[in-house]
């Protein structure tokens, strides 16, 4: 297993309110896993624990059998958080400036920009980009941390429906090529089913359900109209709406 979450509990420091209780989760190398659930079920907290930004009160979080630490995984927060004074190229080079052992040349970074269709924008500032472009740059910045495990916190939440669909297919194609492990947060059930191998449904009573998405890969947007996809989506919707708080 790549990522192992074992009996993890976490409560807010301020008021002692428990957010996660006795959570167990395992993610394999190259797997695409989504976390879904109503607001306040602790999705973002789990991601922050996995980055090492938060420290669990109990249990352990292991990355290839070692306690996870800051800098071990790539993290993409909800907002793009591009540094406004840096060009697109400089933004995606950020991790290589921080981690001295990360060998990333400007040429390699430029190739990535070309691959995601932003070749002409390498010298542009973030304010000159559209919402979809910013998210692509933010994703590249995460990808170019060189980490095998990428944590994506609702990266397409603020995009319009069309751009979102485009970005989903784009993300899938990159993931399939690179064999990265992705843990993804979303509120969009269709998105979760379309992208994931497995879905963890988080409940407010701290229980976690695991749903296996047995749709064939590679997936293309036509799958949205398939009966299986719709059935899975409905099932998820039912489980969430049946939830007792």
């Amino acid at each position: 297993m790549t990522v192992v979450v074992k009996n993890v509990s976490y409560a807010f420091e301020k008021n002692g309110e428990s957010v996660i209780s006795n959570l167990n989760m395992e993610v394999r190398q190259g797997e695409f896993v989504s976390l879904i659930g109503k607001s306040g079920t602790g999705k973002s907290t789990i991601l922050r624990l996995l980055t090492g930004l938060l420290k669990q009160d109990e249990g352990e979080i292991l990355l290839r059998n070692k306690e996870i630490a800051l800098g071990d995984v790539g993290y993409m927060p909800q907002k793009d958080l591009l540094l406004p004074w840096r060009t697109v190229l400089d933004n995606i080079m950020m991790a290589s400036e921080i981690q001295k052992d990360l060998q990333l040349t400007k040429e390699e970074a430029r190739k990535w920009l070309e691959r995601v269709g932003l070749k002409e924008y390498e010298s542009a500032l973030p304010k000159q980009l559209s919402g979809g472009m910013k998210q692509r740059v933010a994703f590249l910045r995460t990808l170019l941390t060189g980490k095998d495990v990428l944590l994506l916190d609702e990266p397409f939440g603020a995009l319009d429906a069309l751009t979102k669909k485009e970005m989903q297919s784009w993300l899938l194609s990159i993931w399939q090529d690179l064999n990265k492990t992705i843990i993804f947060i979303t509120h969009d059930l269709e998105e979760a089913v379309y992208l994931s191998d497995r879905i963890f449904l988080l409940h407010r009573n701290k229980k976690v359900e695991e749903i296996v998405v047995d749709l064939p890969r590679p997936r293309d947007p036509d799958i949205f109209h398939s009966e299986k996809m719709m059935a899975l989506r409905l099932e998820l919707e039912k489980r969430i709406s049946n939830e007792t708080d």
């Binding site: 922050r48 980055t51 090492g52 930004l53 800051l70 800098g71 071990d72 995984v73 993290y75 927060p77 907002k79 958080l81 540094l83 950020m94 991790a95 921080i98 981690q99 941390t145």
Partner: peptide, 10 residues
């Protein structure tokens, strides 16, 4: 959030 992002990069 920016500080946390850079922290997460180590």
């Amino acid at each position: 959030e920016y500080v946390e992002l850079l922290h997460s990069m180590g």
